[in-house]
Design a binder for these strands. Sequence first.
DNA 1: TCTCGCTCCAAAGGGTTGCG
DNA 2: CGCAACCCTTTGGAGCGAGA
Length: 276
Amino acid sequence: MQVVGDVECALQTPRDRIYSYGLFDKPGVPDNIYRGFIELLIRPRLTDYHGILRSQADLDFAIPIFDEDIPLYVDPFLLWRSPSQMDQGLHTSIINAFNHFGALAAKGEEAQAVTNLIAASECDEVGLGSSATRKGKRIGEAKAREIISLFKRVPHYSRVGFRHFEEIQFFVDGISKDRISDICCSLMKSFLIDFTIQQCRKLGIPCGACDVENVYEYRTNSFQTQRGIDLPVNPVTGKPLIFVPKRWLRFVPWINYDEYFEKYCHRTTSHTMRKP
DNA sequence: TCTCGCTCCAAAGGGTTGCG
DNA sequence: CGCAACCCTTTGGAGCGAGA
């Protein structure tokens, strides 16, 4: 089909793909319906697959695509900054969970902290990031140890822990927005599962009993496999799908060193932090 | 009008990990 | 151990605005 071929050519850049999902309007292009329609033709989404004709703009979550990741990232900073008490509470939960890795290391259970961090470093079910196959890669043991060591190496973190765990990308090479987003999703996977079930019931999206691995349990501070949860299933891979509220998503690196240093550090910590 | 500097963006390449 | 896939950083080009 020539038209589809032409359209695929027109949507080759990552940025065009992002606009085509209909989550963001292209600057200067207020009407995104055409692009959403184009995307629908090429790459059917979960809602289209089940015959639910709702546009991305009408829904609270980013509609999953079956064969590849959406090039968007969960920004924990947006949760922290949100006026919603629920979002702030979730951010606190995530930070507590992350700081618990440090607490484990501090009491001599570093191996457990490393294992937990590796488990948290990938979250395939949400389908966010830059992977072309919806199958991410976890961090290795060395990288996990490097992250855990921040709790010892940086005096501020050993004293009071992290307030924004995305700061680890400033200290550890090989950690960036994709990884932060995955860790964030892993640590709030339990909430995202509830959110997904709620949205599916609301829209009538069919679900099936699934097993979900590495769900963080806040009471025991451990990762567990939850079995028999009603979630939508990816017909291509047979794996469960989890939705993410679109208000938490960004498609640009949300915080670079300069911006962070200028806006958030200089008042309180500029005397102890030096820009490299 | 030209040059310089800044920002944004995409492509390329290197490092890391998982799997056979 | 080698290969493939993924993740991240680096690099270079394009676009734009300010100033000479």
